[in-house]
Computed example of a mutant assay.
Amino acid sequence: MIELNTNFQLESTNGKIVSLEDFKGKYLVLYFYPRDNTKGCTIEANEFSEKYLEFEKLDAEVVGISKDTIKSHLRFKEKENIPFDLLADPERAVHKQYEVLKAAKMYGKDVIKTIRSTFVFDKDGNLIKEFRDVKPSNHAEEVLEYIKSL
């Protein structure tokens, strides 16, 4: 496991600036996804939404993070009925911190892409599990099973 500086401060769809500290006392599932309203990201958000009550019963909070703006996140949350908060990282500072960016080519152009990744923190705010370069389908179930095993 990589030693990461895991703390952050980002704007949330709950209208506040949130940090890792705000989730102490609960497990935290922090998942990075490329973009609101895209096929894979919608699948992933919907699966985390469907399992959200199960996460809550295990004392776990789910939070999504992408480079999209709060305005975009709010539309995405409303459209897809996402019950958890989404964090905006338009500068991708936290993406860099968590090492979830990679150079790629898209239509012949150099781009920086988000590597779909999930990080699980214990109730004291310690990083205990990393899921990197995941597929959107069935990932929420994989994370849920991991938390059940704790």
Rank of each mutant, 00 (worst) to 15 (best):
D36E: 05
D36P: 01
N37G: 05
N37R: 13
T38M: 05
T38Q: 06
G40C: 09
C41S: 15
C41R: 03
I43A: 06
E44H: 04
E44Y: 05
E44F: 05
E44M: 07
E44I: 02
E44R: 02
A45P: 03
A45E: 04
N46P: 00
N46S: 11
E47W: 08
E47H: 07
E47D: 08
F48P: 01
E50Y: 06
E50Q: 15
K51A: 12
K51C: 00
Y52V: 00
Y52R: 00
L53M: 12
L53R: 11
L53W: 05
L53D: 15
E54H: 03
F55R: 04
F55Y: 12
E56D: 09
E56H: 04
E56Q: 15
K57M: 06
K57P: 02
L58N: 13
D59Y: 07
D59I: 02
A60F: 00
E61Y: 10
V62A: 02
V62P: 00
V63C: 06
G64N: 04
G64V: 05
I65C: 15
S66D: 03
S66P: 03
S66A: 07
T69W: 02
K71A: 15
K71Y: 09
S72H: 01
S72V: 01
R75V: 10
R75K: 15
R75N: 14
F76R: 09
E78D: 14
K79Q: 12
E80P: 00
E80A: 04
N81T: 11
N81Y: 12
N81D: 13
I82E: 01
I82G: 07
P83D: 04
P83S: 08
F84H: 11
F84K: 03
D85H: 12
D85M: 14
D85C: 09
L86S: 07
A88N: 03
D89V: 08
D89A: 11
P90R: 13
R92Q: 15
H95W: 09
H95P: 02
Q97L: 08
Q97I: 01
Q97E: 10
Y98Q: 00
E99C: 09
K102S: 13
A103V: 10
A104F: 10
A104E: 15
A104H: 12
K105C: 07
M106S: 10
M106D: 03
M106R: 13
M106H: 11
M106A: 09
Y107M: 11
Y107I: 00
G108L: 11
G108M: 10
D110E: 14
D110S: 12
D110R: 02
V111W: 12
V111I: 15
I112E: 15
I115H: 02
I115W: 03
I115A: 01
R116D: 08
R116H: 13
R116V: 10
S117R: 06
T118G: 06
T118V: 11
F119A: 08
F119E: 00
F121R: 05
F121H: 03
D122R: 09
D122P: 08
K123L: 12
K123Q: 14
K123R: 15
